[in-house]
Nucleic acid binder design. Structure first.
Lengths: 212, 212, 212, 212
DNA sequence: TATGAATGAGATTTCATTCAT
DNA sequence: CATGAATGAAATCTCATTCAT
């Protein structure tokens, strides 16, 4: 039934000899996985459902992913990578800036990145067993923390403390969580006001004047 | 469904002797649930295991709890209540204090409360589908937020902003998350240093001098 | 459907409070396992089929057996135990006899025991991965071998060799295999003639006169 | 189904150059099958694994073999043929010999043939469903049995019995099984001693003097 | 009230086989 | 000839929940 249809549709989409086939399949599975994750949540995420959503046979999943967890990971990775890229880029762009500007820009980038796919963010933050995804999350945190540490070290007067590692840890944790919750909980705070608050929080913490 | 819930509410309001048995049972089940949650994690948490750990029959669970989720909730509630109580008490105690002292004391209370049962905290924060437990978490947050809002409103000069709601939201989110992560991730920061950082962060944000 | 029927039939069979229930279930599963093993062979032996044959739900199997292998083992054990018992008994009974009589009696006992359930013997010998059942088979062989070794040691002149261990090994292997194949392959040899041959083979080997 | 069989028979009869490719393929598949059988055992023997081991696509297998069982058969055949050839040769060579010498030589040949590839022997004897391979085993047995029967018939005084068929059956069964078990179980018996025992067993049975 | 045997749907994963290219 | 992606049935096992006793 679906088999012949799938095959035909598939064939009609194909362009490259074999890379395209695999790639399209992986895409399709990840996209289906994302859909299932958002529709049924993590607890309702089953390989059969993903296969159904992707319009393929359950067995076919296993030619592209070793197991169920790998599919979840792929879905999450796609999201994490996008966030990481945007944030790291923003952070790197502003590495030469003065304090408040960089904080605001970075937070804005994070806000934009996280807000771009709130549905996935919600599943990742609220439904996935964090244990399984700690690595991915801490990877970004560590990356950002190191950048911030380096930034602080490069500006001797930029902070009241000399323990830049600790300062960076506090900053990154606070910004990350505030932004995540802002995106997910949608408190009654305007976007600019939120950014102002973050800048105030971090600026006050670092001892830099934040009033432009 | 509603039957067991009724029973639970009922049990918690009564005092009669023969109800002591039910109460003891609820206790036993919650305690067993806690043990299983810590031993096997959320994914390994099954009603059969809880029944086994409690030394009762699986069927008996359903006379005290409507379903599996209710048992998890009860275990988490027990933990949340303890945390909430300690924090609210600390906050109430210091309601008349000046800024820095209150922040430090409250954070210390939270730190103590969360650190008292790291195992459960870890499961709650890292393994439980947060969607199912959002209510409980936000309940405490709201409670604390309202106290902080009131506190800020009572002290006109205590903050640079007039939007106390927003300020309270930022403060509570930041303190909560920093403390949770401090307890769970055990960064290389001494307890007192951590409290200093939190006080610096919040004090700077509120615009109050934090050097005692 | 089958559920209620099963339950009723079951209830009507029950006598003892709870032992009977378990015991009857184990019986039923083993019996069903035997049937499936004989009907579909080892490769067709599936837990679903066993459950179906037993008229119970697949899940119920797992209250009595930890896994599929355990069910196969139970079926085979039942057969092996019967064989072992009969043979060991015959061997022990004749331990004081002179050579030829004992050989003939023991072989006859083995023949009877193996012939009692040819179907199971065939599956055990020809379909089961021997690796899984080596223990059971070698257990009986060892048991018999030790008895034979002791017997030979007790009769200094009973054999041409002094290495009773080797002699026992040869005897047991030969008798076992000949009997198994006699039962399974049904060669055109009368039962008594077969026993005569075994007695001749072993008697000649041991150097004892076998003509009665 | 019949298609691949035809192809195999066909390939084995032809000599043409372009068929060399097919022949090489059959070789490769059989060799890969042997490797998988020895590496993963019979339960781990899958067509995909064989294809992988052979470095070809799973689909290609089906141009040379009708199904999985045929591949197993081919692997086993290769082994059986080698054993059969060696044993038959030894038996034919000694067809004029006196009793003890022939028994010893034949058993030695069997011992050598079986010992040459213990790994395959073990899989064949202990992992393969014997039902599927009975033909091959009984074919050799029958072949040998007929030779032995003829031998016995040609030497009227060579045995105590006149039923040469029965005698041959007993002899072949005993020798075969003893040798297989000797090779597989590695009992603590020296090779020469083992041969002595077999000669003693058979010689005693046949009523011929075995002391050279 | 308490039991616990029984349920049965459903989950993950494997693999012999096909067939369009 | 050869490919190898795709199939899809089937297998083992788990577990929340029920209900007769």
């Amino acid at each position: 039934m679906t088999r012949a249809i799938t095959r035909i549709q598939f064939a009609s989409m194909r362009r490259q000899p074999q890379q395209a086939r695999s790639k399209a399949m992986v895409e399709r599975i990840i996209e289906a996985g994302r859909a299932v994750l958002m529709r049924d949540g993590y607890e309702g995420f089953s390989t059969n459902r993903v296969a159904g959503e992707a319009g393929i046979s359950p067995g076919s999943l296993y030619q592209y992913f070793p197991d169920k967890a790998a599919i979840v990971s792929a879905v999450v990775d796609r999201h994490s990578d996008a966030v990481a890229e945007r944030v790291a880029a923003a952070l790197a762009d502003r590495i030469g800036d003065a304090g408040p500007g960089m904080i605001r820009a970075t937070t804005a980038a994070l806000l934009g990145a996280l807000g771009a796919d709130v549905e996935v963010l919600r599943v990742v933050m609220e439904e996935l067993p964090a244990a399984r995804n700690r690595d991915r999350r801490t990877a970004l945190e560590r990356r950002v923390r190191e950048l911030v540490t380096a930034y602080l070290a490069a500006r001797p007067g930029a902070t009241r403390s000399v323990d830049h590692t600790t300062t960076a840890w506090v900053l990154v944790m606070a910004i990350e969580h505030l932004t995540v919750r802002y995106v997910l909980d949608r408190p009654d705070i305007a976007r600019d006001a939120f950014l102002d608050e973050v800048v105030a929080l971090c600026g006050g913490y670092l001892g830099i004047p934040t009033l432009p």
